[in-house]
């Protein structure tokens, strides 16, 4: 079964569903119909930008940058804790998207997911190069991953949309059991392996695997349900 993103309107959204959907569009909700057929306007727009980029349209690259750069930069900066390195990562990611736009297949995933994966992997590669494993284990902590930190003032317009999107994810993650939330945060941001996460949380590795699995599935389900 192939799953793709969808924004599903429905009564559970609330009295002003449109405003909330605007902020949540682009999140990764899967339907068997495929991304481009899902009705997810944001994902479709991103895919269209990639198609134009594959044709050499630099304006499309600029527009995609405007849409994705903030969460990508925030992710890289959060993983690396270094603004300069985060800029390098984001630069490399957008250049990779530009050079490989022709290979993008919307049926296999959303552009945002692709960009986040590139950003996260490159950030973690840099982190692992920069930091030895022992230091990594000692310095990373679920409490300092910034989950509870103030998201900051990021303005209005598109940025407000970004805030709404982030709020939706935060709400979904907040609803997870604490131990699943901590395991997911470490898995996504710390660059630790399964074994290192288990050591960090002082739990058997099987327990950590189960928590990540349950947490990720619940996260997907909660985001799907909300939308």
């Amino acid at each position: 079964m192939s799953l793709t993103l969808a924004i599903l309107p429905g009564p559970s959204i609330g009295p002003e569903p449109d405003a909330r959907w605007r902020g949540l569009k682009g999140l990764f909700l899967m339907t068997p119909a495929g991304d481009l057929d899902s009705g997810n306007a944001c994902a479709r727009e991103n895919a269209e930008l990639l198609r134009r980029m594959a044709g050499g349209d630099r304006d499309a690259l600029a527009e995609l940058y405007d849409r994705l750069s903030r969460p990508l930069y925030a992710t890289a900066r959060h993983i690396l804790n270094d603004a300069s390195e985060a800029q390098d990562v984001v630069h490399d990611v957008f250049l990779a998207l530009w050079e490989n736009a022709g290979s993008f297949d919307a049926g296999r995933g959303a552009a945002f997911s692709w960009a986040v994966t590139l950003t996260r992997n490159r950030s973690i590669d840099r982190l692992r190069t920069r930091t030895n494993r022992a230091r990594l284990l000692a310095s990373s902590s679920p409490d300092d991953l910034g989950y509870g930190s103030n998201p900051g003032d990021i303005g209005t317009g598109d940025r407000a949309e970004l805030v709404e999107r982030a709020d939706a994810v935060r709400s979904a993650v907040d609803a997870l059991p604490a131990e699943q939330k901590r395991a997911l945060e470490l898995a996504f941001f710390s660059g630790l392996t399964q074994k290192e996460i288990a050591e960090k949380l002082n739990e058997p590795i099987g327990t950590i695997k189960a928590r990540i699995r349950r947490g990720l599935i619940k996260l997907r389900d909660k985001l799907t349900h909300r939308l």
Binding site: P71, T75, G146, N150, P151, V169, R170, V173
Partner: peptide
């Protein structure tokens, strides 16, 4: 990938 939105 949605977890990226958790970053400050």
């Amino acid at each position: 990938a949605a977890l990226a939105h958790l970053a400050p």
